[in-house]
Simulated assay, not measured.
Amino acid sequence: MNPLQKRWAKPIAALALAGALAACGLPQLGPNKKQIFAGSVQREGDAFVVEVNDRVTRATAVAPALGFSSNFISAGLLISDIIRPGDVLGLTIWENVDDGLLASTGVNATPLQEVQVDSDGYIFVPYAGRLRASGNTPNQLRDLITEKLRDQTPDPQVEVRRVAGDGSTVSLAGKVGGQGVYPIERPTRTLSTMLAKAGGVTIEPDIAQITVIRGDQRGKIWFQDLYNNPRLDIALRAGDRILVEEDSRSFTALGATSQQARVPFTSQNLSALEALAQVGGLVANSSDPTGVFIFRNEPAEIANAVLGRNDLQGAQRMVYVLNLKQPNGLFQARDFVIRDSDTIYVTEAPYTQWSKTISLIAGSLTPVASAKTLTGG
């Protein structure tokens, strides 16, 4: 070894050792691939680390199933002509005389604008008395009133209109065009038509969920499913409460992504590729495309299917690994379904830590070089 080599051998070795030590303590966005795999059950850790393939994407492709129970589906349409307690009726009575029982002089028509059916199903009509309205159609009630008045005024003519009523209304709230109480009428006897009557939803249809509360029963459906499949529509009942709200599901993005945040779902079904796109994708100069991880607590039945087992019980910690550099990596990321509360973590590329080490070493050399310059060495 020549004198020059001897002169620089120790400083170089010291710097190399300092770089190695510095690399161990350099700041990281989170664990690297090696550290995640070291925590697997296969290596006496507490989570199953599984590389995603076509079989895994099929086993985990579980979308949230929303829909109404058979009690909602089997309920028939209300016959809006049947009068019920709480309904409000409009009556008009014509008399074929100048000075009638109800009409004033010179007027032969008497309007009774709002006649409410009481809780027992009866209404009161002057000179006809207390009549049972509930259970009759407007035409049947018209005949009944006409019969009662015929003996007191010649050739009475009666019109009965069904205005509305507390007994045949539903309430709409949430992200809907017009919140309020709406009567169930012939054009609005189903959920879809009632939503249309209220001005539709005011949020993106892809993330709109419709909840119907009927007594102690509750049903929920995706807005898009309701309109794409008319068979899922249901008949409304008096007192139904309809709530329109935004999908509350979200995932968390961490690591070497353009954005680290809790991110709401933007569609009913969200793939890993779409989720990465939502946060701006990978970072070109630091992300490792072979280290895209999805952390999830998986139900036992799905975990057993993924792992080819049948002995697991209870929720299992699962870590799914996507390698975007594989020939089918992007296809698998496109097919892998993200679920509520998932955590997507992208590791840093190995050279990123090495670059940090080089920067640290270069930074430590600068003061040394400056000192030599100042001393004239």
Rank of each mutant, 00 (worst) to 15 (best):
I242N: 00
P230Q: 14
L282I: 06
A235T: 05
N228M: 13
I234E: 03
S250H: 05
V263W: 09
S248F: 11
L282W: 11
L282S: 04
F251N: 04
P230T: 08
G280N: 03
Q260P: 08
A277S: 09
N229T: 12
A275V: 02
G255D: 00
R237L: 15
F251K: 01
V244K: 09
L243V: 13
A235E: 04
D247V: 10
E274A: 06
V283N: 08
Q224F: 06
Q278R: 04
A253D: 04
R231W: 15
G239W: 08
Q259R: 13
D240W: 02
S271T: 01
P264K: 07
T266F: 11
A261N: 13
R231I: 15
D247L: 14
P230R: 11
S258Q: 09
L270D: 03
N229I: 13
A261L: 13
L282C: 05
Q278C: 09
S271W: 02
V244I: 07
N269M: 15
L232T: 04
W222C: 05
L273S: 10
V283T: 05
W222E: 05
A277M: 08
N228R: 14
V279I: 09
L254P: 05
E245L: 10
L273G: 12
T252I: 11
G281V: 04
D225N: 01
L282D: 03
N229K: 15
R241D: 10
Y227E: 05
N228Q: 15
D225E: 06
V279W: 04
V263E: 09
S271Y: 04
Q259F: 07
D247T: 14
T257K: 10
N269V: 13
A261F: 11
F223L: 06
R231K: 15
T266W: 11
F223H: 01
L236E: 00
F251L: 14
A253I: 00
W222A: 02
L273I: 08
I234G: 03
S271M: 03
S271R: 03
I242K: 02
A275D: 02
A277Y: 01
L226I: 01
V263H: 05
S248T: 15
L226D: 01
E245Y: 10
A275Y: 00
T257D: 08
G239E: 02
A275W: 02
Q259E: 14
V283R: 12
N229Y: 06
